[in-house]
């Protein structure tokens, strides 16, 4: 397993957001994590990428109550649950965050260069930039445009492109389709499929179940912080109860 999450629980003060979750992602897979609003999908991604631990450090002794983390996460054979977020990125696990979060006042190319921060080899940066431009030609056309003026879909492509600049082994994408028109969603999913076919392992958090189940090798269904089902898309859809209650189809 490239990524292995075992018995991870997260508390924000008294609220248990992640309840004893175990899951794994193998090399080359495209794994999806689906579930209703507030299930803890984004929290789980942020836990894996070390951002929850960072938040825990920042809010220590604050009045909001404490964040508690339990369990073990290994990536590429090494434990990463004690490793700071920026070190985790260095090992090849990167997150394209929810709501895309581009640096809105900066140009597209500067955004991508922040993504390439960990790559010191200039030729490699050029190579990655070429790769990103090939995947998302629109970013090349707009490379000197301030990213706040891009459309939602273009900003999503920028967020994914920025993540790809760091040579990731595992790319986590958090809700890429939120707020996009249906046709743009399909385009974003198509690009994610292409990234996967380049040999980059992808862990995708999504609400748009029908499209995701078609492309993912495996799926996890998360509800109220717990993993309640796992399997291939069509298998999961056979289960009437699961389909109706949790997937809303």
């Amino acid at each position: 397993m490239l990524l292995e999450v075992s018995n991870v629980s997260v508390w924000y003060d008294k609220a248990m957001l992640i309840n004893n979750v175990s899951m794994g992602v193998d090399k080359g897979e495209l794994v999806s994590l689906v579930g209703p609003n507030g299930a803890g999908k984004s929290t789980l991604l942020r836990t894996i990428t070390g951002l929850v631990a960072w938040e825990k450090d920042l809010t220590k002794r604050s009045t909001h109550g404490e964040i508690r983390l339990e369990g073990q996460i290994t990536f590429d054979g090494e434990r990463i649950d004690q490793v700071p977020a920026h070190e985790i990125v260095k090992r090849g696990l990167i997150l394209a965050p929810e709501r895309r979060r581009p640096f809105k006042e900066m140009t597209v190319i500067d955004n991508l260069m922040v993504g390439a921060y960990l790559v010191h080899d200039k030729a490699n940066i050029e190579e990655n930039l070429e790769k990103v431009y090939q995947l998302f030609p629109v970013l090349k056309d707009r490379s000197h445009q301030v990213s706040g003026t891009l459309s939602g879909g273009e900003q999503q492509m920028l967020a994914v492109g920025r993540a790809l600049m760091s040579n990731p082994k595992l790319l986590c994408i958090d809700e890429p389709s939120t707020g996009l028109a249906p046709i743009l969603r399909q385009e974003v999913f198509q690009r994610i499929r292409e990234i996967s076919s380049l040999g980059i392992t992808v862990l995708l958090v999504e609400q748009e179940v029908s499209s995701v189940f078609k492309m993912a090798t495996r799926n996890y269904v998360l509800s109220a912080g717990k993993i309640i089902a796992e399997g291939k898309g069509d298998e999961l859809l056979e289960n009437e109860l699961l389909r109706k209650t949790y997937l809303g189809m």
Partner: peptide
């Protein structure tokens, strides 16, 4: 310089910078 780009990025969104592997 590149350092300046990161300074600017921190002003805009520290979490996204952190998620890009920068020790903010």
């Amino acid at each position: 310089s590149n350092t300046g780009i990161i300074f600017h990025a921190i002003r805009e969104d520290e979490i996204a910078v952190r998620a890009s592997g920068v020790n903010t």
